[in-house]
Design a binder for these strands. Structure first.
Length: 501
RNA sequence: GGGUCGGUAGCUCAGCCGGUAGAGCAGCGGACUUUUAAUCCGUUGGUCGGGAGUUCGAACCUCCCCCGACCUACCA
C-alpha cells in the first residue's frame, strides 16, 4: 500500500514461518484455501451458558449438535485422538478430534495444523472423563491459516510495547485486554444512554477547524488542497456546540476525538476521547450534580458497583463529591498553610519561586493560588473532588462569578489525583467574550503558543443570543482507566500513538 | 529534559569472577484414542539492540548511539 509497508522480501522470516508457508502451499494444492462457506451457528460462551448444567447422560440421551469456529489456542495430539481448545468471541471451548470420527484423511491433515489456525467444527456436545463440556468433532475444517506463531501459550504476550503495537495479538492472547476494551465499549454505551435518557441530543461537529478553539492547547495542522487553506484538527468541540445551543438545541452532547499536539505520557495521548455536553438554563452547580450522577451511572453499568479498587486502593464514587475552592483544598490537605498566606499574592510568589515554579509578572492572585494548588495538593485528591472558582484570566470561555469578576463559575473534577472533567457556566455575553478573546490574542502575540485565537465567527453567533448555559467535558479515556483499573492511557486506547518502529 | 531498570531463539526467560550460547514453550521427526500449560524420546532455530574501545579472548568491562518500560519534570 504505502511506502512504509514491508515488501514480502523485507518481512522477517524464520523457519517457523517458512514451515507454515509450506503448509499453506500444500493446502492451496489440495483445495480451496481460506474458504468462507462454513456456517458457524454457535458461540462458545453461549454453549457453556446453555449446556454446562447438563450431565453426561442428559447429553447422550438428547444429543446437542453445534457448529463452532475459532482460533486454535492449545493442541494436544495423542496418536489417533486429540484435544484442541479454540477461542472465539464468547471465550474458549474444548474440541475432541478422533480419527474414527473425522476420517483418516482429515485427521492426518489436522495433525499438521498449527496453533493459531482458525478451524470450523461440527458435532455433538459431550462430557469428558474429567467432566469438561466438549465438542466431539464429526467434521473439522481448516478455515484460515496462521503463518505467524503465537506467543508462548502459558505466559502469553507480556512486552508492553508489543501489546500496544500489535493490539490484535494482545487481544488474542490476553483475557485482561479483551475485558478492558469490552468494558470501554460498555462505559461509552452507558454514557450515551444516560445522556439520551436525560433528553440530550447527540451531535457531530467538525474535526477540522479553520481556527482551533475551545481549549488552551497546541493544535495539529493540516492543509486542504481544493480550498488551499490551513486547517487544524480540533482541540475541543466547545465553540461549535455552543453555536448549536444558540440554534435552539438546548441540550446537546458530542462524544468523540480531540487532538492536541503536546507531550505524551501515561495520561496523555495525542488523540483522546472527550464527551462534552451543554445544557441551556443550567449553570455550574447543576453541572456538578449531573456529572456526579453520570459517573456513578457508568461505574454501575461497567462494574456493577460504585465502590471499587483502583491500583490497589479503594475508590468510592458513592459518597457526595467534595466541592472546594483551591484555597480550601490546599488547607484541607496541607493544613499548615493559612488563609492569610494563601490570599497573599506576594507570599505565594515567594513560596512558588522557592518551589522552582516559573512565574510571570502579570499573574494574578487566582493564578498563583492555582499554581500553589497544582504544586502541593492536586496529586493527593484521590477521592472525587470538584475544585471550583477558577481564575478568569485562565478561563477565557467561562462566565465570571456574579460576586467577583476575577473568578469564574468553573470547576474541574479530580479523581485519583487526575483531572477527569472540566465544566463551567458559559460566558454568553458577546462583548465580554470579545474582550477575553482580545486578551488571548495579545497573549498569543506575546509568545503564548497555547493562547486562543480571536474567533469572530463565534462572537457573531453569540451576538444572536446564547441563553444562560452550562457546559462540561469529561475525559473518557481517563474515566475508562479508572473503571478498568488501568494505570496507563495506552491500556484503554486500542491503537495508541507510538513512535514509528 | 532528568533518574531507575531493561533489550539474548518466534514467545517467556537463564547465562556467576571475561573463556565464544542455554532452558521451557512453539517448530520438525517418532510413540500415544479422554487430554487440561498433556506426556515421553530425538532434533532444527541466535549479527546476544547498534557501533567503537580494552583484552590473547567480550552477551558479560568502558564509552557513544538507538529502542522500550516505570518514575519524575514539562504540557493540559
Amino acid at each position: 500500500m504505502s511506502d512504509q509497508t514491508n515488501t514480502p522480501q523485507e518481512q522477517d522470516e524464520n523457519h517457523i514461518i517458512a514451515e507454515r508457508r509450506a503448509k499453506l502451499t500444500e493446502w492451496r494444492a489440495t483445495g480451496k484455501a481460506y474458504p468462507n462457506d462454513f456456517e458457524r451457528e454457535n458461540i462458545s460462551g453461549k454453549i457453556i451458558e446453555l449446556y454446562d448444567a447438563k450431565t453426561a447422560e442428559e447429553l447422550e440421551a438428547n444429543p446437542v449438535e453445534v457448529k463452532v469456529a475459532g482460533r486454535v489456542m492449545l493442541k494436544r495430539v495423542m496418536g489417533k485422538a486429540s484435544f484442541i481448545t479454540i477461542s472465539d468471541v464468547g471465550g474458549r471451548i474444548q474440541i475432541y478430534v478422533a480419527r474414527d470420527k473425522v476420517g483418516e484423511e482429515t485427521y492426518t491433515a489436522f495433525k499438521r495444523w498449527d496453533i493459531g489456525d482458525i478451524v470450523g467444527v461440527v458435532g455433538p456436545l459431550f462430557r469428558t472423563k474429567t467432566n469438561e463440556l466438549t465438542v466431539q468433532a464429526n467434521e473439522i475444517r481448516l478455515l484460515s491459516k496462521s503463518l505467524r506463531p503465537l506467543p508462548e501459550k502459558f505466559h502469553g504476550l507480556t512486552d508492553q510495547e508489543q501489546k500496544y503495537r500489535m493490539r490484535h495479538l494482545d487481544l488474542i492472547m490476553n483475557e485482561q485486554s479483551r475485558f478492558t476494551f469490552m468494558a470501554r465499549s460498555r462505559i461509552v454505551q452507558s454514557i450515551r444512554n444516560y445522556m439520551c435518557s436525560h433528553g440530550f441530543l447527540e451531535v457531530e461537529t467538525p474535526m477540522m477547524h479553520p481556527i482551533p478553539g475551545g481549549a488552551s492547547a497546541r493544535p495539529f495542522k493540516t492543509h486542504h488542497n481544493a480550498l488551499d487553506m490551513e486547517l487544524f484538527l480540533r482541540i475541543a468541540p466547545e465553540l461549535y456546540l455552543k453555536k448549536l445551543v444558540v440554534g435552539g438545541f438546548e441540550k446537546v452532547f458530542e462524544l468523540n476525538r480531540n487532538f492536541r499536539n503536546e507531550g505524551m505520557s501515561p495520561r496523555h495521548n495525542p488523540e483522546f476521547t472527550m464527551m462534552e455536553f451543554y445544557e441551556a438554563y443550567s449553570e455550574y452547580n447543576k453541572l456538578m450534580d449531573f456529572t456526579e450522577g453520570l459517573l456513578r451511572h457508568s461505574a454501575r453499568e461497567a462494574l456493577g458497583a460504585e465502590v471499587f479498587e483502583y491500583q490497589g486502593r479503594t475508590l468510592d464514587l458513592s459518597k457526595p463529591f467534595d466541592r472546594l475552592t483551591m484555597v480550601q483544598a490546599i488547607m484541607k490537605y496541607r493544613p499548615h498553610y493559612t488563609v492569610e498566606q494563601l490570599s497573599d499574592a506576594e507570599w505565594l510568589r515567594q513560596k512558588l519561586t522557592a518551589m522552582k515554579v516559573e512565574l510571570k509578572p502579570d499573574m494574578g492572585l487566582g493564578t498563583l493560588q492555582l499554581l500553589m494548588f497544582e504544586e502541593t495538593t492536586e496529586a493527593d485528591l484521590w477521592d472525587p473532588t470538584f475544585i471550583v472558582d477558577y481564575p478568569a484570566e485562565i478561563s477565557p470561555l467561562a462566565r465570571s462569578s456574579n460576586d467577583n469578576p476575577e473568578i469564574t463559575e468553573r470547576f474541574e473534577l479530580f479523581i485519583v489525583g487526575r483531572e477527569i472533567a472540566n465544566g463551567f457556566s458559559e460566558l454568553n455575553d458577546p462583548e465580554d467574550q470579545a474582550a477575553r478573546f482580545m486578551a488571548q490574542a495579545k497573549a498569543k502575540d506575546a509568545g503564548d503558543e497555547e493562547a486562543m485565537y480571536y474567533d469572530a465567527d463565534f462572537i457573531r453567533a453569540l451576538e444572536y443570543g446564547l441563553p444562560p448555559t452550562g457546559g462540561c467535558g469529561i475525559g473518557i479515556d481517563r474515566l475508562v482507566m479508572l473503571l478498568t483499573d488501568s494505570p496507563n492511557i495506552r491500556d484503554v486506547i486500542l491503537f495508541p500513538q507510538m513512535r514509528p518502529e
